[in-house]
């Protein structure tokens, strides 16, 4: 479903050029649960951003559903992200001035949907993460685990085919982390959603079907 070929990513600042990723060849099949592991600064998040079409490679190509997206414009990429990808972040990235339901609605805003339809889908998504009673709360009124569950609801509200999670349990204690992990596994097994998760927690990685290890921008396994 997603194929990266000879992908290289360089970051240029005024004087220094850093190679974040070098010669990555990676293929993720439909329905897989893949984790990406490695020490901090090895390029895990960069790789996830490339998979999620948030960033473009300096060299090499990214294929999504058999389409090469290298020459896609901003609008086409935005549509792909909107319809096929759902993101979950370590810092949750909830909008503090919006209620839980309004936060979950965000991906639907960029589709042509009525207000009523958006509400219905948001409630359904919140129901699936067990937060249907908190729709009118604001993020600051929720615990960390609850906030991440809202973020997950937001990621799945548009029924994406891929969930990309960047250290989703990094800011949570082990019990809350376990809850979040269970939800992700539920989506992978129940809905056959492809999940790619960046983590440095070996125990979580061991529960996934495949582990990609990075070291200093290179793929080691």
């Amino acid at each position: 479903m997603i194929r990266l070929q000879r992908v290289k990513k360089l970051y240029r600042t005024e004087r220094v050029e850093t190679t974040a990723l070098d010669n990555i060849n990676l293929s993720i099949e439909e329905g897989e649960f893949v984790s990406i592991m490695g020490p901090s600064g090895c390029g895990k998040s960069t790789l996830l951003n490339l998979i999620g079409l948030l960033d473009e490679p300096s060299e090499g190509s990214v294929e999504f559903d058999g389409e090469k997206v290298g020459d896609y414009g901003d609008r086409a990429l935005a549509r792909l992200r909107n319809q096929r990808v759902g993101f979950i972040f370590q810092q949750f990235h909830l909008v503090s001035d919006l209620s839980v339901a309004d936060n979950v609605e965000i991906p639907l805003l960029y589709r042509r949907l009525s207000h009523r339809e958006r509400r219905r889908l948001a409630h359904a998504a919140l129901d699936r993460v067990g937060l249907s009673s908190r729709t009118l709360h604001f993020p600051s009124q929720l615990s960390g685990g609850q906030q991440q569950r809202v973020a997950i609801a937001r990621a799945i509200v548009g029924r994406p085919r891929v969930l990309l999670a960047d250290e989703p349990t990094g800011n949570l204690d082990s019990q809350m982390g376990e809850e979040v992990m269970a939800i992700l596994e539920g989506f992978n097994q129940g809905d056959k959603t492809t999940v790619v998760m960046v983590t440095h927690d070996r125990r979580l990685a061991d529960r996934t079907q495949r582990v990609v290890r990075l070291f200093d921008g290179r793929q080691v396994s």
Binding site: G52, A78, H93, V95, P107
Partner: peptide
């Protein structure tokens, strides 16, 4: 900035 980044990740184009 981060909110805007999140919206982009959620599928908003630059124009939107």
């Amino acid at each position: 900035t981060r909110e805007l980044g999140l919206r982009r990740a959620a599928g908003a184009s630059r124009a939107a």
